[in-house]
């Protein structure tokens, strides 16, 4: 069982959360070309190893969280609230 330590609610069972996807930096819609936009919308790197992704705490605080997880070991190394800058949920 994966436990995700929510900054608001504490350690909770993964079944309380909804997986949203890889956290990506949204390109500026002014001046982005179709290729970049398509890549932002549809392409994911899907690594075997550490990755940064968004999860939604559906059965708790109802907040989006930025979760660093190893996709091989399922070890969650960090959970933070999404802030400004960097990949956003």
């Amino acid at each position: 069982m994966i436990l995700i330590p929510c900054p608001h609610c504490g350690e909770r069972n993964v079944s309380e959360f909804q997986y949203v996807g890889e956290a990506l930096t949204r390109p500026n819609p002014d001046g982005v070309d179709p290729e970049q936009w398509r890549s932002y919308l549809y392409l994911r790197s899907n690594p075997a190893g550490p990755t940064v992704e968004s999860w939604f705490h559906r059965a708790g605080c109802r907040r989006y969280l930025k979760v660093e997880r190893d996709t091989v070991t399922n070890e969650v190394t960090s959970v933070t609230l999404p802030g400004r800058g960097g990949p956003q949920p």
């Binding site: 079944s15 309380e16 059965a59 708790g60």
Partner: peptide
């Protein structure tokens, strides 16, 4: 006060 799963209901 907390919100969680109780009998699988939020």
């Amino acid at each position: 006060v907390f919100r969680s799963s109780v009998a699988k209901v939020i």
